[in-house]
Design a protein around this nucleic acid. Structure first.
Lengths: 232, 232
DNA sequence: TGGAATATGTCAGCTGGATTACACCGCAAG
DNA sequence: CTTGCGGTGTAATCCAGCTGACATATTCCA
């Protein structure tokens, strides 16, 4: 299922540790992004929202506290759980960090089983689809929390795959995707299904949206793939 | 802020460690009660309800596990978060294997920053809760004080687990939860139960609600989990 | 205290909706 | 007109969730 491997953003200034973490976490079946400092971390988050952030507390430049506060304040990022990584005996930072809103804490040196256990525990506590992700385009509303779609208030009945497909399109509008790209993003990377299967689900999605007049937003780009667009 | 000044009950048979903990935790601005064994701990709890219990699991007499179970069963004490203190990391796994409902673990030797951090984290996530409420959705009334449920006045017969399940759903409507999340929130954080068990209790809950016509509010979201919703 | 009633968790087989592949059709572009 | 791409209906397959039964734990009450 495409549900698994969560994205984890590792923010750590020391390259060797970063690589070690990447290795260990990839083995534990997570998808990893890396950032060496806070500005780079901001970039990575903007690219795609991670499900969890592993944040080294002691870094040159912007401190972990400031960055945590920044993240916990931003409406898009405030629900991303943060685990802070500190060296031992930094009591001050630890207490302050937890007050700022870190979700857990782990101190170097730590064992990988412990790290993955903490990550799993934190992920288990958080809710699917982030807290209040509310996508809406021209009266078409996709509510991630309840996994429901409404068109001008009217509920739209969708199967799981159609829901994921629509969710993907609504969050990536005005851009053409090939069938292969759609399969990658909606079905998951290591799944082999016929490309034409996308057609079938596109059709079903259009069919479900048609009574509400939204089917025209799923547009065919002949020779390439599909595009979600408000414009006709 | 409000996090400090919380009452912590330390249950630990070795006096030196007890004193050390008291010193460290008082410096971290907690109010501390001490108990050298389980009977004494019962007394302290009766005196005044602590906000958190730090419990050594290797003690003469009643073991930490038994005591945890006792606390988690009692209606007055079941909401007090418990952090279990174990001698070694391996024992953590042993303890974890048993179905004890404690909220976190820490293994000796630990640093004080780590201890306070864990305490903060546990308090943070268990902070909201414990109050009695009167929940009602569309004629379905859940009375927390008496643990009774009525549907349009008619009493609904529910087992304890079904009651907690319904209470959880009614207080978190319009949102999908995975089985894992339901287990975490309804059964407790470190209780290991098969995910399929959720299905069974969902079914029992639906069965109990069916005669009153409320079973449709417990909705299956295929591929994800369940949702409680007023809407069809 | 002992036995009945109730509650809980696990399992395995079942079932129907969801997913997928495939074959055929229609139409747009060149 | 022809070519090939995308649309559509259908049928096979699959799998998530449903269900009933059972074993065990807990509570209740005589």
């Amino acid at each position: 299922m495409g549900m698994q491997n969560k994205r984890i953003l590792v923010v750590e200034d020391e390259a060797p540790i970063r690589d070690m973490l990447r290795f260990a976490l990839e083995r534990a079946d997570f998808r990893i992004s890396l950032a060496g400092d806070v500005p780079e971390a901001r970039l990575r988050i903007a690219e795609s929202r991670p499900d969890l952030i592993l944040l080294d507390w002691m870094m040159p430049g912007v401190s972990g506290i400031e960055f945590t506060r920044e993240l916990k304040t931003g409406p898009m990022t405030k629900d991303i759980p943060i685990i802070m990584v500190t060296a031992r005996a930094e009591e001050e930072d630890t207490v302050r960090g937890l007050n700022v809103g870190c979700d857990d804490y782990i101190s170097k040196p730590f064992s990988f089983p412990e790290l993955t256990a903490r990550i799993q525990a934190v992920l288990r506590r958080t809710l699917p689809g982030g807290e209040e992700e509310q996508l809406a385009v021209a009266g078409l509303q996709v509510d991630a929390a309840s996994q429901r779609v409404t068109a001008k208030g009217e509920p739209v009945r969708l199967g799981p795959t159609e829901y994921r497909l629509l969710h993907f399109f609504v969050s990536h509008p005005e851009r053409v995707y090939t069938r292969e790209q759609v399969l990658d993003r909606v079905w998951g990377q290591n799944v082999y299904v016929e490309e034409r299967t996308v057609d079938v689900h596109i059709r079903r999605l259009r069919k479900a949206l048609a009574p509400h007049g939204y089917d025209a937003m799923i547009q065919t780009v002949r020779g390439t793939g599909y595009r979600f667009s408000e414009k006709v």
